[in-house]
Amino acid sequence: GIPATNLSRVAGLEKQLAIELKVKQGAENMIQTYSNGSTKDRKLLLTAQQMLQDSKTKIDIIRMQLRRALQ
């Protein structure tokens, strides 16, 4: 079985993952909103794209940590 310490770690990672998935969803929504907007929305679009990139990276890292914890 999986050690108890790993189980609480997994629960924490799953919570983090859920949050990051919401951030990713929000960033994707912002990108959709701003991509057909005016030029003043360009900065917001770039910010949203950066957020999305960061979020995807975090999600990958969390998933990797989850896999390790579940081994």
Rank of each mutant, 00 (worst) to 15 (best):
M30F: 05
L52N: 00
Q25S: 07
L17G: 00
R42I: 14
L7W: 02
E28W: 07
I31P: 00
V10C: 12
V10I: 15
G26I: 15
G26N: 15
I19R: 13
L13W: 04
N36A: 08
L46G: 03
I62K: 00
D54G: 04
Q49K: 07
N36V: 06
G1R: 09
N36L: 05
T33W: 13
A27Q: 02
G1H: 12
S35G: 06
A4L: 03
K40D: 07
L17I: 02
R63V: 08
I2K: 11
Q49E: 05
T57E: 12
I31K: 01
E28S: 02
T57H: 13
K24W: 06
K15T: 04
G1N: 11
S38I: 11
L70V: 06
Q65P: 00
G12Q: 15
L13V: 01
L45G: 01
L7N: 09
L46M: 09
Q50F: 04
A18L: 09
A11W: 05
G1I: 11
A4N: 13
L21E: 04
M51S: 04
M64C: 14
N6S: 10
D41S: 04
R67I: 09
K15M: 10
D54M: 07
Q32G: 04
T57Y: 09
I19N: 08
M51W: 04
R9W: 13
R42S: 14
P3M: 06
K43T: 11
A11I: 10
Q53K: 12
K24D: 00
M30H: 03
M51T: 06
A48W: 10
I31C: 05
D60N: 13
E28L: 14
I59F: 00
Q71I: 13
L17S: 00
I61F: 12
N29I: 13
G12D: 14
R9E: 13
K15W: 07
I19P: 00
L21M: 11
L44M: 11
L21Q: 04
T33G: 06
G37M: 05
Q25H: 06
R63C: 14
A69H: 04
I2N: 11
Q53E: 12
Q16V: 04
L17F: 01
E20W: 15
L7P: 12
K22F: 05
S35M: 14
T57L: 11
I62C: 01
T5V: 10
K15Y: 06
P3W: 03
I31Q: 01
L17Y: 02
L17Q: 00
T33E: 15
N29D: 13
L45E: 02
A69T: 05
Q49Y: 15
K58G: 01
T57M: 14
N6V: 08
I19E: 13
A18C: 14
L44K: 11
D41K: 02
T5M: 10
A18Y: 07
Q50S: 06
T33S: 12
N29K: 14
K58V: 03
Q71P: 03
S38T: 12
N36G: 06
Q50C: 12
T47S: 12
K15V: 05
L44P: 02
G26L: 15
L21C: 13
L52E: 01
Q50N: 06
K43G: 09
E20I: 07
K22G: 05
Q71C: 14
I62E: 00
N36M: 06
R68Y: 11
V10L: 07
V10S: 02
I59Y: 01
T47Y: 14
K22T: 06
G12E: 15
A69I: 14
T57G: 05
K56M: 13
E14V: 15
E20C: 14
Y34T: 02
A4V: 14
L45Q: 02
L66S: 00
T39V: 09
Q49F: 12
N6F: 02
K40N: 08
K22H: 05
D41P: 02
A69K: 02
A11E: 14
L70P: 02
K56F: 04
K22N: 05
P3Q: 06
R9F: 12
A69Q: 03
K15N: 05
L45P: 00
L13K: 00
D41H: 05
T39W: 06
K58T: 03
A4C: 15
I31W: 02
I31F: 02
Q16M: 13
I19M: 12
T33Y: 14
G26R: 15
R68L: 14
G26E: 15
Q25Y: 06
N6Q: 08
Y34Q: 03
I2H: 12
S55P: 00
L44D: 04
D54K: 11
G12I: 15
E14R: 15
E20G: 01
L52C: 04
E28C: 09
R67K: 08
L66Y: 01
A11P: 04
G12Y: 15
Q65E: 12
S8I: 09
Y34W: 04
A4D: 12
E14K: 15
A18T: 04
V23H: 07
D41E: 05
P3T: 07
Q50I: 08
E28Q: 06
K24T: 03
Q25F: 05
R42C: 15
R68G: 05
N29F: 12
Q53D: 06
L7F: 02
K15E: 06
N29H: 14
P3E: 10
I19K: 10
K22L: 12
K58F: 02
L44H: 05
L70W: 05
I19S: 07
T5F: 12
L46V: 09
G37R: 03
K15A: 10
M64Q: 11
R63Q: 07
G26W: 13
M30K: 04
R42K: 10
Q25N: 05
L46T: 05
K40P: 07
L70K: 11
I61A: 09
G12F: 15
R9N: 07
M51G: 01
T39E: 12
R68D: 11
G12K: 15
L7H: 14
L46N: 04
K22M: 10
S8R: 07
A48E: 01
R63I: 12
I59R: 00
S55I: 07
V10N: 02
R9H: 11
N6A: 08
R42N: 12
A69Y: 08
R42W: 14
G37N: 09
K43F: 11
S8V: 11
N36Y: 07
S38N: 09
D54C: 11
E14H: 12
D41A: 03
R68P: 01
M51E: 05
S55W: 01
G1M: 08
N6R: 10
T57N: 10
D54Y: 05
S38C: 12
R42M: 13
L45T: 01
S55H: 01
D60L: 14
D54N: 09
D60F: 14
R67Y: 10
I2D: 11
Q50Y: 04
R42Q: 13
R63D: 02
S35W: 09
N29M: 11
N29S: 09
R42T: 11
L66I: 14
A4W: 02
M64K: 11
D41M: 03
D60K: 15
G1E: 11
N36W: 05
Q53H: 10
K40H: 12
L44E: 05
K15S: 05
Q25A: 10
S55T: 09
K58A: 05
R68E: 12
K58Y: 01
K56N: 11
K15D: 05
E14M: 15
L46Q: 10
K15Q: 08
L46K: 08
G37D: 10
I31L: 05
R63W: 08
E28M: 10
P3C: 15
L66H: 01
E20P: 00
I61V: 06
Q25G: 02
S38A: 11
M51K: 04
D60W: 14
M51H: 04
I61W: 14
G37T: 06
L46P: 02
